[in-house]
Amino acid sequence: MSWTDLAAHGRILIVDDAMENIQILHHVLGEEHDVLFALDGEKALEIARTQRPDLILLDAIMPGMDGFEVCAALRASAELRSIPVIFVTTLSNPEDETRALEAGAMDFIAKPFNVAVVKARVRTQLTIKRQADAMRELSLTDALTGVSNRRSFSDTLQSEWRRCLRSGTPLAMILIDIDHFKLYNDSYGHQAGDTCLQQVAAAMKRCILRPQDMLARYGGEEFVVLLPEEDIAGAEVVARRLQEEVAALSIPHRNSPTSNQVTISMGVVSMLPGEASSPDQLVRVADTLLYEAKESGRSRYKLAAPA
């Protein structure tokens, strides 16, 4: 499948205070794409946050928050800045186009527009977006196990902390260590160790059931699970599931002082984000609990829910 093929069936947000303009663009693009619309800038930002469109077609002149302000707000948001914007507006001076590009727009189409030109420009921006998304996915994925990498975890931790802070909901984290993994490598070799990591990662991935949950490789034989909007009781359910899935693999570990097969230890914490707490604190508590689990015999978890 080519990048051009992937540019089809995008989610496009049309922002214009005139419904007739929205209807015209919907007619032009609706057969190939999922089309959303907003009649003002504030609603456009709300839809962008909740629906995450692949592309925004934005009018410049609107009452209240105009298109330039909307574009600037999108670019100022870590969550939304990657969404490409095309201005579609009656403004036609070079100065207006320059202002739009300086605000962060990727393209500029003057009204009245040519239908073929609109389709071509939309296709181009969606293709570029798909390519950028694919490259970003590669940069945020652990090459060995196929789960998210530590950079991806760090980015997601920051954004989910802010989201849970806004909504007043808890954020849970499980820090996981494969017990005596150095001894496993010494016993079976590094190639077998890589296979073990892949099998354990795949087993734990089966425990991640909600779209907002995340499994990442934290480093070496350590993994981490992030559970937004989850209290300590829910996090414990996931921890038990992780233990069961890894145990079901029955991977032999002849030199382990803990068991004759591969096991995991975990630190489980749920915290309500607030002014007196931080994402780093969540990680530190999980790390301390993991240490306690390992010191008390391994193949177990320790949990806490600090205020």
Rank of each mutant, 00 (worst) to 15 (best):
T127E: 14
L91N: 11
T98M: 05
I174V: 06
R151A: 06
L126C: 11
R99T: 02
S152V: 01
T169W: 03
K182R: 11
K111H: 11
D179F: 00
V117E: 08
I128Q: 14
V118A: 10
A100V: 00
G104Q: 15
L175S: 11
M173R: 03
L157H: 12
V117R: 11
R150I: 01
K182P: 04
W161I: 03
R151N: 03
D142Y: 08
E137K: 07
L165E: 09
T90M: 09
W161G: 04
A105F: 07
A100Y: 07
E160A: 04
R123G: 09
W161S: 14
I109S: 12
R121L: 06
G146K: 08
T124E: 09
G104C: 14
T156C: 15
N93W: 08
A110D: 13
S167G: 09
N114P: 02
Q125H: 13
L91R: 15
L165D: 04
I176F: 13
T141W: 04
A172W: 05
N114L: 15
T127N: 12
A105E: 12
M106I: 08
L171D: 01
L157F: 08
A105Y: 03
R151K: 13
Q131G: 12
I176W: 03
A132S: 07
S148Y: 14
E95L: 05
L144W: 11
T169Y: 12
S92M: 08
P170F: 01
K182T: 01
T127A: 13
L165I: 01
K129A: 00
I128H: 05
S152H: 07
M173I: 03
A143F: 07
R99G: 14
L101S: 12
E102T: 02
D142G: 01
N149S: 13
T141Y: 00
C164A: 05
K111Q: 07
E137T: 15
L144C: 15
G168R: 13
A110Q: 13
E97F: 06
I174G: 09
R123V: 10
R130V: 06
F113I: 05
H180L: 00
A116E: 15
K182N: 04
Q158D: 06
L157V: 09
S167I: 07
I109R: 10
V122F: 04
D133W: 03
T145E: 00
V117H: 04
A103E: 13
V118S: 03
S167Q: 14
P170W: 07
E95S: 00
D177Q: 01
I176S: 06
E97L: 01
F181T: 08
L157S: 07
R99S: 10
A132L: 15
T156R: 15
S92N: 07
M106N: 06
H180C: 02
R150G: 02
A116K: 05
H180A: 01
V147F: 06
L175H: 00
V115Q: 10
K129G: 09
Q131Y: 07
S148P: 10
N114D: 09
L157P: 13
S92Q: 07
P112L: 15
E102R: 14
R163N: 10
I174W: 06
S154E: 13
S139A: 15
M135Q: 09
A110E: 12
V122I: 06
P94E: 09
T141C: 06
G168M: 09
K119E: 01
S148M: 12
